[in-house]
């Protein structure tokens, strides 16, 4: 059984994703505990700069599979490369961030190497020499602690869940992995990619939703929500009251008769929190509410509430978020 801790260090636009940094920094302690090496695995095209940065976060070694054939993510070619890396290196632990890419890739890899995998973890601890993962189930209504009894132990961990631990930078050796993708792994072909960088995410899939209700007072005022949404990468929703009033299109209605959403963060602005609205967004992981009525029902479910004029708070919040985004 391997002792090395491998981190699937996802690269985005040539840079290490933040979650990769988080995992590397925490993987360091695990590797030390197991007496193994911390190895960053980078797959893609043009990952050189990112590979070079891994040592900074505690990696002993970097395996870089850099190929034009890996320019765009497709499950099977990536699975072939990662599967090959596991087969050749026999790591004890293999972690990835719980990103859309890893959620797609890791289950297939896990099956290929006959490993157990825990996805969507929010916590990772070392207990009695074993890695124990915490993950929410039933939409966060319960938590479970799970241990993987295979080698490697595989898991995907949510971004921001662990944060970045302080580690001493190391000199990491970057090893290029020869990429050979069997023809069989090329069955899926990408015909077209429609990036929606400028557009806001779909309501139902958005991780953050900024939503406005009757308190918005009119359709013209939604621009302040849109500005906030854009700095957050969020979608803009509306309550039934706002849709009924003709301020927003029905496609953006959140609630019983509209869309049911469960984003990580739901910011309710000028929404009273009628039951029919809660039915559509009650499963949001974190709810923030801004409403001038202290009695508004939304405050009974909101994790964070501001009783104030949303026309003052929302623009200020946009500025604050902008600052945070610039800092990170």
């Amino acid at each position: 059984m391997g002792k090395d801790v491998f981190i699937f260090a996802e690269v985005k636009a040539g840079q290490l994703r933040k979650v990769a940094v988080e995992l590397l920094s925490h993987g360091r302690a695990v590797a030390d505990q197991f007496g193994g090496q911390l190895v960053a695995v980078l797959v893609g095209q043009g990952v050189g700069a990112a590979a070079a940065a891994c040592g900074q976060y505690g990696a002993d070694k970097v395996l870089a599979a850099d190929s034009s054939e890996l320019a765009t993510y497709i499950t099977e070619p990536y699975a072939a490369v990662v599967g090959q890396i596991i087969a050749e290196n026999q790591p004890g632990v293999f972690l990835a961030g719980n990103t859309m890419l890893a959620r797609d890739l890791f289950p297939r890899v896990a099956e290929r190497v006959k490993a157990g995998l825990v996805t969507d973890c929010t916590g990772m601890t070392l207990e009695g020499g074993n890695l124990v993962f915490t993950r929410p189930i039933y939409a966060g209504k319960a938590l479970t602690k799970v241990q993987v009894e295979s080698s490697p132990v595989m898991a995907t961990i949510r971004p921001n869940a662990l944060g970045v631990a302080e580690v001493a930078a190391r000199q990491a050796e970057v090893v290029q992995v020869a990429v050979t993708i069997p023809a069989e792994a090329k069955r899926v072909a990408i015909k077209e990619v429609q990036r929606r960088e400028s557009k806001r995410p779909e309501l139902t899939e958005a991780e953050i939703i900024v939503s406005g209700g009757r308190g918005m007072k009119g359709p013209e005022n939604y621009v302040i929500l849109e500005e906030l949404a854009d700095v957050l990468g969020a979608a803009v929703g509306a309550s039934r009251a706002a849709v009924d009033a003709g301020w927003r299109d029905h496609a953006f209605q959140v609630g019983q008769t509209g869309k049911t959403v469960s984003p990580n963060l739901y910011i309710a602005c000028g929404i009273s929190g009628a039951i029919q609205h809660l039915a559509g967004m009650g499963s949001s992981k974190v709810i923030a509410a801004i409403n001038k009525d202290p009695e508004a029902n939304i405050f009974n479910v909101a994790d964070y509430g501001i009783v104030d004029d949303l026309f003052k708070v929302v623009p200020a919040l946009t500025q604050e978020v902008k600052k945070l985004v610039q800092e990170s």
């Binding site: 209504k141 993987v148 405050f299 909101a302 964070y304």
Partner: peptide
């Protein structure tokens, strides 16, 4: 089985939420 569930638990009950006071900014 490759995974072992060690424990189930319930998350702490949803708090009535934090009310944030102060000037809008």
């Amino acid at each position: 089985s490759q995974v072992k569930i060690l424990q189930y638990s319930l998350p702490p009950a949803r708090q009535a939420g934090k009310k944030i006071e102060g000037e809008p900014v």
